[in-house]
Simulated assay, not measured.
Amino acid sequence: MNPINVDFGFKAKFLFSVGSIYKAPPLMLKIVLTSEESKSDMKSGKGKKLDEEGNCRLVGVAKVDPIDDFLVNSFLAFPTECLAYINAVISISASS
C-alpha cells in the first residue's frame, strides 16, 4: 500500500483565566492540518503520510489574530502565527 495523504480541518477555542480574578475573551483558531508540508512567511513544518499501520504526523500553520484584550495581545505578540503538530493513528474500515 502506498502512503496516503491526510488533510484534517481543526477548529479550537482557547480560554485563558487567572482564577476568578481575570478572564480573557476566547481565542479562536482555525487550521488545516496536513500530512504534506505546511508553510507561511514565518513558520513551516513537514508532516508524514498515513502508513500501513495507520500512523501519520499532521502539521499546520495558522495566523492568530488579535483578540479584544490588550494584555493578551501584548503578552502573546498578536497578530502572529502558530505551528501545530499532531501525531495520529487513523483506522479506516470498509463500509458495508
Rank of each mutant, 00 (worst) to 15 (best):
M1V: 14
M1T: 15
N2M: 12
P3I: 00
I4L: 14
I4Q: 09
I4M: 11
I4W: 03
N5F: 08
N5P: 05
V6Y: 01
G9Y: 05
F10V: 09
K11S: 10
K11H: 07
A12H: 10
A12G: 15
K13M: 13
K13N: 14
K13W: 05
F14G: 07
L15R: 03
S17V: 02
S17I: 05
V18S: 15
V18E: 15
G19Y: 13
G19W: 14
S20M: 10
S20T: 08
I21T: 13
Y22R: 12
K23P: 00
K23S: 11
K23W: 01
K23H: 09
K23F: 02
A24T: 10
A24F: 02
P26E: 07
L27H: 03
L27M: 10
L27D: 06
M28S: 15
M28Y: 15
M28H: 15
M28R: 15
L29I: 14
L29V: 14
L29Y: 05
I31Y: 05
I31E: 14
V32P: 01
V32C: 10
V32A: 09
L33R: 00
L33N: 02
L33G: 03
T34E: 04
T34C: 06
E36I: 00
E37S: 15
S38Y: 09
K39L: 11
K39H: 13
S40Y: 10
M42H: 10
M42W: 05
K43I: 05
S44F: 04
S44L: 06
K46D: 03
G47P: 03
G47I: 09
K48V: 13
K49L: 14
K49G: 13
L50H: 04
D51Y: 00
D51F: 00
E52T: 09
E52S: 13
E53L: 09
E53Y: 11
E53K: 12
E53W: 11
G54M: 01
G54Y: 02
G54I: 02
G54V: 02
N55M: 03
C56Q: 07
C56E: 10
R57I: 14
R57C: 11
R57N: 09
L58K: 04
V59T: 13
V59N: 05
V61G: 00
V61F: 01
V61I: 07
V61P: 00
K63R: 06
K63Q: 06
K63L: 01
K63S: 04
V64D: 01
D65G: 01
P66L: 05
I67S: 06
D69Y: 02
D69L: 12
D69F: 06
F70C: 03
F70A: 11
F70L: 07
L71P: 00
L71V: 15
V72K: 03
V72C: 12
V72W: 00
V72F: 02
N73H: 13
N73P: 10
L76P: 04
L76M: 14
F78A: 08
T80W: 04
E81S: 06
E81T: 07
E81A: 08
C82Y: 05
C82H: 04
C82L: 14
C82R: 05
L83A: 10
L83R: 11
L83H: 10
Y85S: 09
N87K: 12
A88F: 07
A88G: 04
A88T: 09
A88R: 11
V89N: 11
I90E: 03
S91P: 01
I92E: 01
S93Y: 14
A94I: 12
A94S: 12
S95T: 14
